[in-house]
Amino acid sequence: MAEQVALSRTQVCGILREELFQGDAFHQSDTHIFIIMGASGDLAKKKIYPTIWWLFRDGLLPENTFIVGYARSRLTVADIRKQSEPFFKATPEEKLKLEDFFARNSYVAGQYDDAASYQRLNSHMNALHLGSQANRLFYLALPPTVYEAVTKNIHESCMSQIGWNRIIVEKPFGRDLQSSDRLSNHISSLFREDQIYRIDHYLGKEMVQNLMVLRFANRIFGPIWNRDNIACVILTFKEPFGTEGRGGYFDEFGIIRDVMQNHLLQMLCLVAMEKPASTNSDDVRDEKVKVLKCISEVQANNVVLGQYVGNPDGEGEATKGYLDDPTVPRGSTTATFAAVVLYVENERWDGVPFILRCGKALNERKAEVRLQFHDVAGDIFHQQCKRNELVIRVQPNEAVYTKMMTKKPGMFFNPEESELDLTYGNRYKNVKLPDAYERLILDVFCGSQMHFVRSDELREAWRIFTPLLHQIELEKPKPIPYIYGSRGPTEADELMKRVGFQYEGTYKWVNP
């Protein structure tokens, strides 16, 4: 592979701008107003304001973009700056750019259920340069409990009458099928589907988006991507930290609602779906819905739930269990780990287990898709061969690698495990991989909904998990304890083995 010439960040961002501006969906010269509902909250200060700053800094926003914060707290732009700027990672050389960014910011205080507050917000936006005809993007960085009041008031008082209007809704989209349907029906009564952007930030990850290209742009994968060759698929999300004093919020939802029903299920769809007619948003989402419709409700015998306990040999936070978090209700049975087996009941995947695993306070930070292939028929190497695996590593250190057998150097035919490896950090030294939120917010500006969740996708996802969630809430089974920093409950490994996964433990990928 030829040595790549190092590029400056300015040059890299210039390439990104060229890609972005050559499309006809990006209205570079139009006025846009980006409204952050819930501007005083954690999500706004840690993710949304920093993301908008990065896009502005790199010249990736339309030229005439204004940012308006809205929340109940009586704040000023200076207050917003004070709480969000520490997350910007701005350099001293960017000081003038930073001043320009905050000059485009404003803030309006108001209630979430008060019509007069929204009329005041609308008047404020109209007073901005060309504000009355601007395109408006409303980001709901809010708890779902206020979605209905907020969307109703936005629709009645704050819509642009000339430009387009788009609304970005953060997960969780309800707690179960019934609450999700209620919320979807409410929002759909106010906005068209092409105006609604239900954001799952995992769909903005580079390697998640790469799944489609790997599958449908490489001839070698087509013939082997089926039940005849693939023994099982494992989708993993692991965090090495616990709730760390923020367990009160987590306890309301648990690990299945927080990660599995959305992030992991979306990745499953991209692995299992048929080739779409095109890369058009609805063509892709149509195929994802077909996959979900082929999955039956989760069966309790295919589920393992766990909850982390303190590690007596650990240090600091590792010595504390979930129930030691003062914000967690006493005696909570909320799971911090889950392993679930699903089956896609169609011709391509009949009988292939899709194993979804996620948890907190585990032994490493990792998100990946792992396809394990069947054993080689007619073994001539005296059971020395391990199964081939194709691994798409989402985070950290984005990579695609194939675990395969090669001859060990020497005189004899002794096979050993090795890999074919594409590590993004080595291959793409001159490429700026956008943060997931950067990519998705740019998608909203461009009107691309491919990486957002459609209402029928959402409904099918909740259909699969709601009976299990209701059973857990009714019966309150005690989750299996696992030690902070471990791989999780051993019962999860036993479940995976029972459905056909072979864990060798003899080879570990190392970032080159």
Rank of each mutant, 00 (worst) to 15 (best):
R219Y: 06
G174C: 01
F88Y: 08
Y49R: 04
K152Y: 13
Y249D: 05
N64C: 11
N185H: 13
S117R: 09
N105I: 09
G222I: 07
E93C: 13
G23D: 15
L142N: 04
S117T: 10
F56K: 06
A217E: 00
R72A: 02
P50W: 02
Y118K: 05
N226P: 02
G247R: 05
K205I: 04
L16K: 10
Q22A: 14
H155A: 13
L98T: 05
G23W: 12
P86F: 07
L16Q: 12
L235M: 13
R81W: 10
Q28D: 10
L60T: 02
A44E: 00
P50M: 04
Y249V: 02
M212I: 09
E193V: 08
E19Q: 12
E18L: 10
R192E: 10
I80F: 09
R9M: 10
I167P: 02
L61I: 12
L203W: 00
L61Y: 02
V233N: 02
V213F: 10
E239N: 00
R57P: 00
I199P: 00
R104E: 01
F101S: 02
V150N: 06
V233K: 03
T10C: 10
Q161L: 15
T243I: 07
E206F: 09
A39Q: 00
K152S: 13
N153M: 12
E94W: 06
F34H: 06
G38W: 00
H186Q: 13
T31K: 15
K152W: 10
P172N: 01
E252T: 14
I199N: 07
Y249F: 04
P144G: 02
I52C: 09
E18N: 15
G14T: 12
F221S: 08
I220Q: 03
P144R: 02
F138P: 01
F253L: 02
D176N: 11
I220C: 11
L75N: 09
F221L: 14
F173W: 10
D30M: 08
E94Y: 07
Y139R: 03
L203G: 03
I220H: 04
S179H: 04
D194K: 12
Q161Y: 15
G254I: 04
L43C: 04
A39H: 01
L137H: 02
L128I: 13
G163K: 08
Q161E: 13
I220D: 00
I35G: 04
Y249H: 04
R74Y: 15
E206R: 05
F26I: 09
H124N: 11
I220G: 03
E206A: 07
R198W: 05
L20G: 00
R227I: 01
S106P: 02
I196C: 08
T236S: 13
Q28R: 12
I52T: 06
A115M: 14
T145Q: 07
I167C: 14
F66K: 12
D181A: 11
I15L: 10
M207D: 00
R81F: 11
G14D: 15
Q133K: 14
Q209G: 08
N218C: 01
I33C: 10
I168W: 02
N105K: 00
K152H: 15
V233Y: 02
L75Q: 10
R104H: 12
A44N: 00
A141L: 00
Y147I: 02
D100M: 12
N185V: 09
R74K: 15
A231P: 00
Q178C: 15
A78S: 15
K47Y: 11
W53Y: 11
E148C: 09
S184M: 11
K47R: 09
T145V: 07
L121C: 06
R81L: 11
Q195E: 14
S160W: 06
Y147N: 01
I167W: 02
F87K: 06
E193A: 01
S29Y: 15
K97H: 07
I230P: 03
Q83P: 05
F216I: 06
K46C: 01
G242W: 03
N218D: 04
A44L: 03
P92C: 11
H186G: 09
D58M: 14
M159S: 15
N122V: 12
E193F: 03
L121T: 00
S189E: 12
E244I: 12
L140W: 07
I67M: 07
S184W: 06
E85N: 06
L16D: 14
V108Q: 10
K95R: 09
I154H: 01
Y112E: 00
L43R: 02
G38Y: 03
R227K: 14
L55I: 07
I255K: 04
R9V: 14
K205P: 02
G245K: 10
P92W: 08
R17V: 14
K238D: 04
D113G: 10
I80D: 00
C158N: 09
A39S: 05
N105E: 01
N226H: 10
V77C: 13
